[in-house]
Design a protein around this nucleic acid. Sequence first.
RNA 1: GGUGGAGUGGCCGAGAGGCGAGGCAAGGGAUUGCAAAUCCCUGUACACGGGUUCAAAUCCCGUCUCCACCUCCA
Length: 463
Amino acid sequence: MRLFDTATREVRDFIPLVPGQVSMYVCGATVQAAPHVGHIRSGVAFDVLSRWLRHNGFEVTLVRNVTDIDDKIMAKGEIENRPWWAVAAHYEREFQNAYTILGCTPPTIAPRATGHITQMISLMQDLIERGHAYAAQGDVYFDVRSFADYGKLSGQRIDELLPAGDAGSSSPKKDPRDFALWKSAKLGEPSWPTPWGDGRPGWHIECSAMAKAYLGDAFDIHGGGLDLVFPHHENEVAQSKAAGQAFANFWLHNAWVTTSGEKMSKSLGNSLLVTQVVQRVRPIELRWYLASAHYRSNLEFSDAALSESAVAFGRIENFVTRATEVLGEIELSDLPVDFIDAMNEDLNVPSALAVLHEVVSAGNSLLADGEHGAKLITALSQVRGMLDVLGVDPLNPTWNSSQSDSPQAALALDALVQGQIVARAEAKEQKDFAKADAIRDQLSALGITLQDSAESVRWILEK
RNA sequence: GGUGGAGUGGCCGAGAGGCGAGGCAAGGGAUUGCAAAUCCCUGUACACGGGUUCAAAUCCCGUCUCCACCUCCA
C-alpha cells in the first residue's frame, strides 16, 4: 500500500513500524463550536483509511484527540454564560454525535487535553533540560532557533514567515516565532499548577503529549486537515523530535470542503452544520458524498452535487436491496483486484468507485436476466464488501433508522401495500389502466414507489 | 513577501507521455398498457501561448485565473 506523505511530498510505500499493526494519531476537534461538513469530511476520510487498513488485516490503534481547553472555548463560555468546561463538553458531544451518525468507527481512544496535563509538564521539563524551551514570566516557550529542522514539514523558513501577531514589544519571547507551550493564567482563567506557576496549555503541546502517552515515541501515521500543517503539525513535530522522539512516520492531510471555491469555515459564514445537511439527505448519502472524492482534493459542496450524489448512491443501494431479496444473507468474498489496486494507491476512492459501478451494472443485468446463481452472489458480496470498506453498506445495522423501523410496523405496512399491489394487478388484468394508475399514484403520494419487473412487483419507501 | 495546491466535456470527478476512468444530466434504443426500475448505444474534454517527442491533458518554458497556509481553523 502506498500513501502520500506530506513530509516528503510524495506517494511512498507504507510499511508499519510493527508488522501487522498500525498506530495512528488524528487531530480531532477543538470543541468550541458545532461540527460542519468540512470537519466531518476529515472524520470520514480517516475512517476510510482505518477501515481499509483493518480490511487488510492490520490491527489499528487510532487516537483522535479532543482539545478541550483553548482561548476560543473560554471566549465561548463568556458568550454563552457558562463555564468553559460546559462549553467543551457540549461541543464534544456534538462532534461525537456527528461522527456516530456518519458511521465513523469509534477511535480506540479519544483523549482530552485537560486529562494529560501531567504528561505536558513532563514534556516541557524535558524540552527545557535539552535547551529547546524556556520559561519566562510564567509562560513556557519553544525555542524555534534551537531546532534545526523547524519548518521542514511545511517547507517554511523561519526568516520568511510573516511576523507573528502577538510579537509585541512586551512579549517575553526570545524570537517572535517562538510559540507558547504553556500560558500563565490570568485572573479568573482556568489553570493547573506547574513548576513555572499556574497556567494552561498552549495549542500544540496536547497532541505531542497524548501521542506519546498512547502511541509511544514513534508511530505510523499522523493525520489531520491541511490547515494544520502549519503551524500546528510543524510545532508538534518540533516539540516531539526536540524531545528525542522519532514521532510520526507518515503525515496525511485531507483537503477542504469548499463552497464557491472557498474553504468552508465559520469566519466566512459559509459553513453548513452536519445537523442541517442530514435534514436534506440521509446520513449515509452524506457520507457517500464526502467519501466519493479523493481525500486530498477539494470537494466543492453544492446542493445540486449533493442531490445528484444521493441519486447515484440510490442506484447502488437499489442493487444491494434487490439482490439481497433474491439471495438472502450471503458471505463476503474477495474484492475485485482493480478496487484493491485503487485503494492501495493512496486511497484512490474515485477510481475504486468506477469498479464498484461496473460490478453493480453487471449485477443488475444478472437480476434482469433472472440469473440468481453464483455470479450474482459474487457480485453482491463484492459490492457489499466494497461499500463496507467505505463505510456505506446500506445493510449495515449502523444505518437503521431506529425510530421508524420497528419490525411490526414494517410488516403491517408491507401487508397493506401488498394488498394495493394485488388490487392494481387485478385492475391491469381487466385492462382498467385508469384504476391501476390511480392506485400507483396514491401510493406514490405517500412516498411509496412501485418497481415492476417481469416476475414480480416490489415497493420501496422513499426516505 | 514566503510556502503549497488547482484550472479536465452541461455538471461532478479520476488519470498524469501512447490507443476516450466512472457517475449524474442529455439524446436514441430495449423492456412496459403507460410509467418507474433495469440494460444497451451516443461524448474526441483536459485555462492560454510556445516548445520537446513518432506520440502531450500528461514533460519543458512562459502567461493568465483561482484557492489555501504563514493569526484560530478539519
